[in-house]
Computed example of a mutant assay.
Amino acid sequence: MTDHCRLGVTSPIVTRLPGVAAEWEATAGIAELADIASAADELGFEYLTCSEHVAVPTEIAAQRGGTYWDPLPTFGFLAARTRAIRFLTQVLVLGYHHPLAIAKRYGTLDAISAGRVTLGVGVGSLREEFDLLGVEFEGRGDRADDALRALRTSLSAIEPEYEGAHYRFGGSIVEPCAVQERLPIWVGGRTPRSLRRAVELGDGWVPFGLSRARLRDMLDSVEVPDGFEIVLGAGPLDPEDADSTAAELERTRAAGATIIGVTIRASSADHYMSQLRRLAETAGLKGRIR
């Protein structure tokens, strides 16, 4: 590709989606993931991901998968093995947590990683999981909006204060807190409301399950602020085929992406790292000197 392309890595191993995850991921663990994270860090990729599901009902796991590593301990471990790559929760379900719990836990992660956390958040769609956790499913969108406002005031504040429709707090110390002055919040979703929520209350939008034509139509319908990130997925990619990989990245960028989250085909952890190197070369990434 002739122009520099910003790429994030949709992490293998931590989430095993039926029909997407490779066989080798079933037996890989934190050692392999840490090696992959270190390679991605050196090559200049933007971020690694980790999603959140607490308990997926067995009958639903056949479609959504049942393996979801928790992002907090996963990223805490990887922070010690990397220097610059960021850590993106893709996504954290807002309704499962009090905003101050998110601020404390991920503020601590931000502190120990020297400011490398990006919160990807979502409203949540799995009613059965809400029920299992004793969280109200109806009205979750309004509560999520309030949680986002509360998070914006809380993430980087030692003494956070907020008064909203669903959350109210003040007069308490939450330390450590995030070291970034404005910790980025990217909102996931696939509806026009999720895009409006992201533009109004976040710093980026991470859509899924939408065609490029639909994405382009939705983005053209709103005024996107300066610096707002549009994070679109590409793949699964086979970087051994450099031409098709470059074409797929270009199509994704043309759909409006400011950052592309890549899923990579590989047959082993070692092959995955080799594929990362090929992709970095194709995309023109500038590696980091350690």
Score class of each variant (00 low, 15 high):
22 A>W: 08
28 A>E: 05
92 L>V: 09
74 T>D: 01
136 E>W: 13
77 F>Y: 11
110 D>C: 07
37 A>Q: 02
20 V>I: 14
128 E>L: 13
123 V>A: 07
130 F>A: 02
63 Q>R: 15
126 L>C: 04
140 R>E: 07
14 V>Y: 04
140 R>L: 12
102 I>L: 05
65 G>D: 06
23 E>V: 01
89 T>A: 08
13 I>L: 06
18 P>N: 09
129 E>Y: 08
30 I>V: 08
36 I>C: 00
50 C>F: 09
107 G>Q: 08
34 A>H: 00
110 D>Y: 13
71 P>Q: 12
74 T>R: 02
139 G>L: 13
119 L>Y: 02
84 A>H: 15
72 L>I: 13
82 T>Q: 05
56 V>N: 11
117 V>N: 03
132 L>N: 11
8 G>C: 05
80 A>T: 07
104 K>S: 15
127 R>S: 03
70 D>C: 06
33 L>W: 03
7 L>F: 07
118 T>A: 10
75 F>I: 08
52 E>S: 12
124 G>L: 09
62 A>M: 11
121 V>K: 03
100 L>E: 07
85 I>S: 01
87 F>L: 05
35 D>I: 01
133 L>K: 04
104 K>L: 14
103 A>P: 05
77 F>P: 00
139 G>V: 12
77 F>T: 12
16 R>Q: 15
130 F>E: 11
45 F>Q: 06
20 V>P: 05
87 F>S: 02
40 A>E: 05
